[in-house]
């Protein structure tokens, strides 16, 4: 019994990587959703824009964001490698295959769902992340009277202003930041994109209903005491609450804003 292979070249090691990157991406979703809920504030986007600046400029968060990008890439690459290997494991396909008799649709189509999500991530990042980082987003100025809490917003046109500032002067809080909120409003006027976002969130739901509990199974966490809790979180938080929360945003902006 001396034969053994390096952890990450084994099938179980590759699964471990899928599991860890997947779970990391799940934690990101929670943060991302909570932050983006600020889109629903009726403050002309002030809190959201301020938050967007914080998220892109606070160093620890920036480090985490690079980990995140890496996770997405690794998760996708390993998924591809595993899928290719799995296909090789059955060179002749069945003429009749009743997958639905023994397993859930989502569990058999993680690759398809993941591909939809990858396309979504690319679209999503080019809509917002790319524009935000490449000066495709104009600045806005908020003046808030701290005694009355009334805010007035003024768009800063063109390249007139390019610096984030936040200070208080004579009980007036002045905030100048990139107006990502406006970009959101603008993007979600396009019904094609709205539809795609909603479909992608449905894909996310199915991906996570299987993926979340699957990640724990791969890690070996399987105990009758907490397995039901994992299943519950997987379905209701990651399969229902989070995708609905995200999908609500394009719908809200298209129909109500």
């Amino acid at each position: 019994m001396s034969k053994s292979t390096h952890l990450f070249s084994s099938s179980l090691g590759k699964k471990l990587i899928m599991s860890l990157t997947g779970l990391f991406l799940c934690t990101f979703l929670i943060v991302h959703l909570i932050g983006n809920l600020q889109l629903f504030y009726d403050d002309q986007g002030k809190a959201f824009n301020d938050y967007a600046h914080f998220m892109t400029h606070f160093t620890p968060i920036r480090i985490v964001s690079y980990l995140l990008y890496a996770s997405i890439v690794i998760h996708a690459v390993y998924a591809l490698v595993l899928t290719i290997n799995n296909r090789k494991a059955r060179p002749v396909r069945y003429a009749a295959y009743e997958g639905s008799a023994n397993s859930a649709w989502s569990s058999r189509n993680m690759g398809l769902l993941g591909t939809v999500l990858l396309v979504f991530i690319v679209t999503h990042m080019s809509n917002f992340w790319w524009k935000y980082h490449n000066d495709g987003v104009p600045y806005i100025e908020y003046r808030t009277d701290l005694t009355t809490q009334e805010t007035t917003a003024t768009e800063l046109v063109g390249e007139e202003y390019t610096d984030y500032v936040k200070y208080v002067d004579n009980d007036i809080e002045i905030l100048k930041a990139k107006d990502l909120y406006k970009q959101v409003q603008f993007t979600f006027q396009n019904w094609v994109l709205v539809a795609f976002y909603v479909i992608a969130m449905a894909a996310l739901s199915f991906h996570l209903i299987h993926g979340f509990k699957s990640a724990f199974q791969t890690l070996g966490f399987d105990h009758q005491k907490y397995a039901p809790i994992i299943r519950f979180i997987g379905i209701w938080l990651f399969g229902v609450a989070i995708p609905i929360g995200f999908a609500a945003m394009p719908i809200y902006f298209y129909f109500f804003n």
């Binding site: 034969k3 179980l12 008799a101």
Partner: peptide, 26 residues
């Protein structure tokens, strides 16, 4: 050592990897 040896042989035989669909159990 048993777990490692058996998994290594399983991989060497060309079986696919698990995606936790549960079809096997069913």
């Amino acid at each position: 050592s048993r777990a490692q040896a058996m998994v290594a042989q399983m991989d060497a035989e060309g079986f696919g990897s698990c995606t936790n669909t549960g079809a096997c159990e069913a």
